[in-house]
Structure formats: C-alpha cells, structure tokens
Simulated scan of single mutants.
Amino acid sequence: MYTIAIHGGSGTINRDEITPEQENAFRRGLEAALDAGYTILNRGGSALDAVEQAVRSLEENELFNAGRGAVFAASGKHEMDASIMCGQSLKAGAVAGVTNIRNPISLARAVMEQSENVFLLASGAEDFAREHKLTFEPDEYFFTELRSQQLKEAQEANKTQLDHSKRNTGKGTVGAVALDQDGNLASATSTGGLTNKKYGRVGDTPVIGAGTYANNQTCAVSCTGYGEFFIRSVVAHDISCLMEYKGLSLKKACAYVVQDKLKTMGGEGGLIAVDRAGNVELPFNSEGMYRGWRNDVGEGEIAIFA
C-alpha cells in the first residue's frame, strides 16, 4: 500500500466566486502535484521524495500561496516558511521568513539532512541556502498583479489577512503527506503566510508539531488555516498523540481536533493526514479546502468545495 495526499490551502471558497476557468486551473495544479508525488511512490521511491516534489510543484504554480505564488508581506517582500519531517527517523527541517528562494521546501529538507539544526530563520537560512547551492529567483519571479492588489487592499484596510479575498487564488498554504512502499511516512508544508503580515510574523507552517508532523508509528499530517490557532493547539502532533496514547483511529483523531477542539477555540482551517495503514483523512471546518489524494489501488479524488 502506498498513498499520497496534498492540499493547496483552506478558507472561504465559494462556488459563485470561482469561474469555471479558475476552478479548472486549480484542479490542474492539484493534479500536477499529485502526479509529481505519486510517480515517485509508484516507482518505489521514498515518502520524503514524494512530499518534497509534490510541494515543489505547488510552490512553482502561482495560483497557490507558496513559492512563486506567495503573498506580499507588509515589507513588500515575499517572506516564506516551510517544513518537512521524516516519519522513520523523526528528523525534521524548517525555515521561516526566507526571501527569493525558489523552493523553500527543498531548503527545509537541506536543513534536515545537511545540518545539525531543525529550524533556520530569514537571512541565516538564506546564507545556508547559498552555501548549499539552492536556487534563488529575482523579485520579478514572485510578482503577480493579483498578489500586489491584495496587498494594496490589506494596507488600505490596515489589516493582515488570509488569502480569502473574492479574487480567488490558493488559500494560505500548500502541503503533502505520503506513505511509501517501505511503510515510511513523511509530511511537508510550505506557505507565503498572511497578506500584509508585519513584525516578522510566523504561523504554524514551519513549526514542527503544529503545522507539520510525521511518525511511522502513527501518521503524517500537514495543516492549513489560521496558524496562531494551530500553534496553540499543536494540531499536527496532537493528532499523532491521540492515536498513540488514546488508541483513536486517524479518522476520529482528525475529527476531534478539527471539528471540536479547533472550532471551540475559534480556529478555522483544515489538514491532510495519512496513517501507517494508508488511510487518508482530509477534514476542514472552513467553507472549502483545495485537496486531493491517490493510492495504489486506484482510489482518490480532487476537490475544492465542502
């Protein structure tokens, strides 16, 4: 059994706010990311490689709020976060506040595999990226008229915001989880964060245990939504703990955390998760979540709306 699931963010996603052309573009983007990860699993590759490549695909698609499609921070820059975790070794890598990195998820993996650290920040992470010859891109690569307009609207309203405007694009974060043929799990998450974010704000995406977690004994999880709530609830690790310590199934653990615990706190969002048996859950408490999954027996779907 091998399985992969992906997400392109969650939030206020209404059918009447997306044209058929936009919906088709989002679905093609999700399909391409699924293909990128699934092809690796199908060839006997690792879950780590699969989640990295799936997320790289989403980072290189300007429709989604990560990498090329990242939203603008108040500084006028794209301050990106990412993390990755291996369920076999429990090793992890994360970066926050990086700019001009083509694929932040690959930088997070380099931190995991080529340093003694877990978490690197901003200019330090960029120095590490240069030393390890990761690809940088100029500001123009990350610029889109849509993101520029979203920043202008947020600045005029003097607020930060999730990518929830009616000019529909990807919602907040991208991620992938996978189980490979060797029974190993992995998770990866990447984001541009909030439009007009200030003071070096960092959400749950690069926080191991909050936005990303993987453990071969339980599950792999990647989250999307209002990061502050996911950090306070340690969502990704909480699901693993409910399985390990209370014996809950993946389905019950996800339902409790997303539909009960997060909702009670006022947290909006969702997650994707796969357990060591290949079961997949994609719960969310928002109006929609860009999502998809596929396994080796031909099951799967791509969906956007609730």
Results as ranks from 00 to 15, higher is better:
E126V: 13
Y256N: 14
F143S: 01
L41K: 00
A94W: 07
V71C: 15
F230R: 09
V258P: 01
F143I: 13
V221T: 12
I18M: 15
L271E: 13
R28Y: 05
F284H: 15
L194I: 10
K246C: 02
S75Y: 00
G269V: 10
F64Q: 05
S249W: 05
S89R: 10
G209T: 07
L250K: 12
A5H: 07
L63R: 15
F143W: 14
F305K: 02
N184V: 01
G29Y: 08
F229P: 01
A92R: 11
L250H: 03
T3Q: 09
S165M: 11
Q155V: 04
S165K: 11
D180E: 07
N216M: 00
R167C: 00
A210Q: 04
S83P: 05
L248G: 03
V174Y: 08
A70E: 00
V95M: 06
T160W: 13
A82G: 10
R15E: 14
N103E: 12
V55E: 02
A220T: 13
W293M: 10
V98W: 04
R68Y: 01
M85P: 04
K252F: 08
A188I: 03
V177T: 06
I4H: 09
S222D: 09
R109T: 09
I101A: 00
L30Y: 09
F305D: 01
F119D: 13
S190R: 15
A303C: 13
G292T: 07
Q114G: 09
K263E: 07
L242I: 03
L185S: 08
M80E: 05
R102E: 06
G203R: 00
F128E: 10
A277T: 11
A210C: 15
E301F: 07
S187Q: 11
F119K: 08
G37M: 03
D182R: 14
N215P: 09
N216T: 08
G183C: 05
A32W: 00
I272V: 14
N14L: 14
N65I: 09
I239Q: 06
H237S: 13
G45R: 07
F26A: 06
S286T: 15
S106C: 14
I13S: 04
D238P: 06
N103P: 02
L282N: 09
P283K: 05
L262V: 05
M85N: 01
